[in-house]
Each structure stands twice: as C-alpha cells, then as structure tokens.
Amino acid sequence: MMYRVIGRLPAPLLAGAAILLALLLCAAAPGTVAPYDPLAFDYAALLQPPGRAHLFGTDQFGRDILSRTVAAAAIDLQIAVLATVGPLLIGTVVGLLVGYYGGIADAVFGRLVDLVVTFPFLVLVIAIVAVLGPGLGNMYVAITAVGWVFYARLMRSEVLVLRGQDYVSACKVLGYGQARILLRHVLPNAARPVIVYWMTDMALAILLGSSLGYLGLGAQPPAAEWGVLIADGKNLFTQAWWIAVFPGFAIVLAGIGFSLVGDGVADLLDVKR
C-alpha cells in the first residue's frame, strides 16, 4: 500500500524529499552524522586538508569542517522555514483579499509594491537589519517585512484571473457566502504558483541567510551557519579551499532539494496530470 503511493509520486519530488530528509537528519541529530564536536578546537590538527581523519578537512582552529557543516544544517533549515512562513501567510491573505475585492485597498497595495520593488531586496533587508540590530530574530523580521509583498503580488494576479471565471460567478449565483467562495473555490485554484514559489523561496532564503551571515548580520559566530562558515573560509581560500567549499556544497544541495520538491509539488497539485 505504502509502496504503491510512493511509486505514484513524481520522481523529482522523491529525489528532493530524499535530500531534504538527509538534511533534516543532520539538523535533528547532528551527533549521528558528525564525527566531532563542531565547536571543539584541536591544535594538533590545524588546517588539515580533507583526509581520512577529517573527511572535509579542518579550519585554522582545528575544528572539523564536516561536523560544522552538519551542525549548521539545523540553523539553515530553520532559516528556510522561518524566513518564508511569515511572508507566505501574510502575502497569501493580502493577495487574496486585494485581488478579489480590488478597490482602494488594491490601489494602495499597488503603490506599496512599486515602493518595495524599487529597492533591491537585499539592500532593503540589510537596511532593516541594520536598524534593528544584527541577529537571526531581526533577520526574520526584516525578510518578512519585505518578502510578503512578492507572495501577495503573485497571489493577487492569480486571483484577478480567477474572480472573472465562470465558476466563481457560478458560486455567487448559487448563493454561496464570500468566505466559502474565497477559501474553497478561489484559494485552492490560486495556491499552486504560490506554493511552488514558496519552495524555491526556501532555497533563496538559505542563500539570503547565508549572505547575511557572511556579512555578519544574520547568525552570529561561533554558531555554525553555512554562510558564516564560507565567510570564515574566505581569507584562507588560497591555502585551505575546503573551509569554504564544503559549506558551499551544502547550500547548493539544499537549494536543489527544495527546488526538486517545488517541482514535484507543482506536478502533484496539477489535477489534470
């Protein structure tokens, strides 16, 4: 039974889910994967290249890169989820209402979008974090404050198309209430691109979190975060490439995982498949 259900799922979804599950395992139980304590210094093994004792090598304090990369999965997955859930929820609700009812709220929303997209996303987020102070919590606030606009814009454009559809008119002439029409008939039909965008946005959020970590605005050292790890390795890149490269691989892997799941979910949500 279980096997048959899995067999019918799209292949990209399975591949992506496998990657994410592996990362989730790293995040939930780093001890089972990582051979060393990610924060333990080892002065007997400074800047070791990848080898048998240290699969991914060590940094200038003798910390095991594999252990640090694995330990960082927890923070990065947390970033992927926490930095996107807020924008997803706020954006979906705003986009749904603004798209369906239009009017003054829609006009105000349109100008707000103009205002936000005028600035590069990263610049705006950095500005907000700079005001609030560095740290993960403030980073979430900043990303949510800016990011919801993109979800709302996507949702709105879907809803604009849907509200003119005959089945929405049909709901009205059937005497259905507005909540029923919005939640049961408009939302499920508009949700697909938003969910797919959400999946890719999780990958982007990791990159963003890593960029901010790299700039020292996100996760603070000595906490292991992929962007922070890369930042740590940048000065030593010519002597010890492994310090920056392996966390970089981890970011790429997570990005591929989320993108594949996004593709798969898009396939799943397409009823006509």
Partner: peptide, 13 residues
C-alpha cells in the same frame, strides 16, 4: 443560473 462554458463553470480542483 447555468453558463455557456461548462468547463469554466466548474471548479477544476
């Protein structure tokens, strides 16, 4: 009320 396009008048999901 029933409409001209029966496909469009039904919710696809």
């Amino acid at each position: 009320t029933i409409f001209q396009e029966p496909m469009a008048a039904l919710n696809p999901v």
